[in-house]
Nucleic acid binder design. Structure first.
Lengths: 185, 185
DNA sequence: GTCGCCATGTAAGGGGTTACATGATTCG
DNA sequence: CGAATCATGTAACCCCTTACATGGCGAC
């Protein structure tokens, strides 16, 4: 339900095409929401016909032309209204936890490789986030009027970093537990 | 895609009815997968016709009769096969992070109440998990052959606890950041 | 007598994933 | 000459959520 709102936020931060939005969802937005280009194009169409966003054709040379979207008045209003609404914490879905508990009925040690793969994926993401932080948020905020957009982007990124660190530590815990079955017999 | 596998794991741990499964998804299974009774009944039907599970009618007194499901051979095989498959880390979806970043284009301080609500929800869940751990996993595992089912349930629960603690700490970070806008002008 | 629990479903609609489709340009 | 990037879409399918539906029993 929040995809359209995530798109509004992203377009408010910087107008762009559907393709560019898809890339942002792979990168910075990816640590709190994901979407593929198919979804994005479909939703952009609906948002356009609802008057939430404006479209501008941008001819380009050496590349296909693109449509640049930007947030219109009603889009801003829709976002403000949604910010007031209550939303419940999202439900968690972890394949890997299902597998870990399911491993009790198969071979626990056979899961080690899979856990290591996931651990590596999380470490790669953490490294990307840390690089992004070093690039975009180099200094602790100086005193004085804080810049809302910047500060809020930063605190969300800190959340992504905390999540990846938590996952890596947990996966280490899982690996130690699984290794216990290999050694303990 | 893992709902049917989560049900297999739950039924292997202990056979039960659709209603009982729904309750388990609210409780212990809830920290790594969620499902409503509507979903569960539908999937149970399909799993039954695929021969993954057996059904047994259990008449009851003072309560409606129930159907008790248990895992059949092909279900066990399906779970074992799935444990071998690669699954990619689940994509994250956090409404609240979208809102935090969107607050830059509205009133950041208006979000404080919502963040506090979420914080409380996570604290409640953490308290439930800790109570569950004290009840079900009172002692550090004694030496000797570890019990796979028990150990693996415990490590998944530790993951749930780590997740809730991480979220609470992050929400505190968000609250401090949001409060900065109220004070900083 | 109403509320909550136990117990099982159907139906509609919305959102997300996967596959298919096209076509130009740049880099190795 | 093939692969990757830029750029935009359609179609089918599956999963999930929300609403509707029923009905007996026990507690306050």
């Amino acid at each position: 339900m929040a995809l359209e709102h995530a798109i509004l936020v992203s377009l408010l931060e910087k107008p762009g095409s559907g393709y560019e939005l898809a890339r942002r969802f792979e990168r910075s937005i990816g640590y709190f929401w994901t979407a593929t280009h198919q979804q994005i194009y479909r939703v952009l169409k609906r948002m356009g016909s609802d008057g939430w966003i404006d479209v501008r054709d941008v001819p380009q040379q050496g590349r296909p032309d693109k449509k640049e979207y930007s947030v219109a008045g009603p889009g801003r209003d829709a976002l403000r209204a949604w910010l007031q609404e209550r939303t419940e914490p999202e439900s968690v879905r972890h394949d890997l936890a299902v597998k870990v508990r399911g491993a009790a009925f198969g071979d626990p040690t056979a899961l080690i490789g899979e856990v290591e793969r996931h651990r590596k994926a999380h470490e790669d993401r953490l490294a990307r986030y840390l690089a992004g932080r070093a690039r975009d948020f180099p200094l602790p905020s100086a005193d004085g009027a804080p810049d809302a957009e910047h500060e809020l982007q930063h605190v969300v990124l800190r959340g992504g970093i905390a999540y990846e660190r938590m996952m890596i530590a947990w996966l280490d815990d899982v690996l130690v537990t699984l290794a216990g079955f290999a050694a303990g017999r």
